[in-house]
Write a protein that binds this DNA or RNA. Structure first.
Lengths: 235, 235
DNA sequence: CTTGAACCTCACGCCACGGGAGGTCCTACG
DNA sequence: CGTAGGACCTCCCGTGGCGTGAGGTTCAAG
């Protein structure tokens, strides 16, 4: 038995018959021979190629990448390096999401979860409108992790401010004033230290406050923004 | 302007017009109103919902998950927790792939990259044939990270053995014998300490050696397996 | 009134297959 | 030698979250 049927090969390799059909269709692993009636016969070379493909798939490469990797063996190393870079980037993204979710779950009540998210989302939009490119490049310069760290700090701030609001702490209270200072400091990190950009962001914020946030009638968080404004005024 | 056109909303939210069409199509964010000619008019409530959707998307939730999350706000927390668990699992997978790729790039020549992978792939198949379920459960018990650690150790072993072969070190050399011992120890970790399973795995290995690996005529690694066999005999 | 931008619907493409329909072929058993 | 049932064949639709046209209508500014 020097030729393999598709079913036997599927069992031996742990792949499905359907996957082998697919590899055949796209020309990645083609059965070199057929029986008179059209059944696939895989030669030892075909089997070898399948195992190569399988091993590369386990590294997370796409079928197209595998195809070009197998076409010239000297392209393996750059492809691996690219894949490693992609995986590293993905690891950072996943870690960023994880930290955000952890911060959310850890610090916020069930009721405030959605409105907190919504507020962050709208707040982010204030800047993506006009200075979008500027902020994107700034975010790129800081690195995604730093951006996520900022967002996590922000979540913490919102949590504490909400707590003070719920407790009825006046906005002029030193603790609240301190939090409002941190709020502005965070905003400054987003907008950078350049006063011109800061002013533009502030203008953007004020304009949009009357366009978006009042339009959608923020239920609880409109109050929060007001609260921070009052605390800021108390400085 | 208390109603938003789709283009303005796209600009404000940073999403594309096509994405908004899609959300409308699947009923996730529907424009509550239309002009006489059929142009979408988004009400403030629609806008609010869009920002909620966008914020949940940024956490990596699927549109279906978002739909159910928004249908009952009390389902947010369990969904977040599930997402956190999924992200944690994904982080482990990515990390496992990264460590494998790093081990490969770090220790192997361009020529040996593919054959090393192929060998691992075939070797793995020896066990997935008959004792597949047994090994899968064992792998599950060890956890994916432990499995990846084993594979990384294996890569290191192969690297050193290949080096000795290239240097012409005889298989009876104590260093090579030691490596062969580690090779078997690694195999034992794969197959477990149960002698019965070990024997079965050994049989499987021997049988398949004559079926698969000789069939596909391993170019360089056939020699490596031989080399290890000789070193094992020298013990 | 005209033009160009914005908007509409319809529909195919992506990626790596899963799953099913409907038919042919192989193999072991009686 | 017949037959049953498993293995195999091709064709085609579905997945998720839109991107990217095609081809037509409508809006807003000049």
């Amino acid at each position: 038995m020097t030729r393999w049927s598709i079913g036997d090969l599927a069992k031996a390799s742990g792949l499905t018959v359907r996957a082998l059909y697919h590899y055949d269709e796209i020309g990645l692993v083609v059965a070199s021979e057929r029986t008179a009636s059209g059944h696939r016969r895989y030669t030892p070379d075909d089997v070898r190629r399948l195992y190569q493909v399988r091993s590369l798939r386990q590294l997370g490469l796409s079928l197209d990448e595998i195809r070009s990797a197998l076409s010239r063996s000297d392209s393996l190393r750059p492809i691996f390096e690219a894949q490693l870079a992609a995986l590293t980037a993905q690891a950072h993204q996943v870690e960023a999401l994880r930290s955000r979710l952890t911060a959310l779950l850890d610090g916020h009540t069930t009721e405030s979860l959605l409105s907190t998210l919504e507020m962050m989302s709208v707040y982010e939009s204030y800047f993506t409108a006009d200075q979008l490119t500027d902020l994107r490049s700034r975010a790129a310069a800081m690195g995604p992790e730093a951006v996520e760290a900022l967002k996590a700090s922000w979540l913490e701030l919102v949590k504490q401010l909400r707590q003070h609001m719920a407790d009825g702490t006046p906005a002029s209270d030193p603790r609240v004033v301190e939090l409002s200072r941190q709020w502005d400091a965070l905003g400054a990190k987003f907008t950078g230290d350049d006063p011109a950009i800061k002013a533009a962001a502030q203008r953007s914020w004020e304009e949009n406050k009357t366009s978006i946030s009042t339009q959608i009638g923020w239920p609880a968080d409109n109050g929060l923004v007001e609260y921070v404004s009052q605390a800021r005024a108390a400085r």
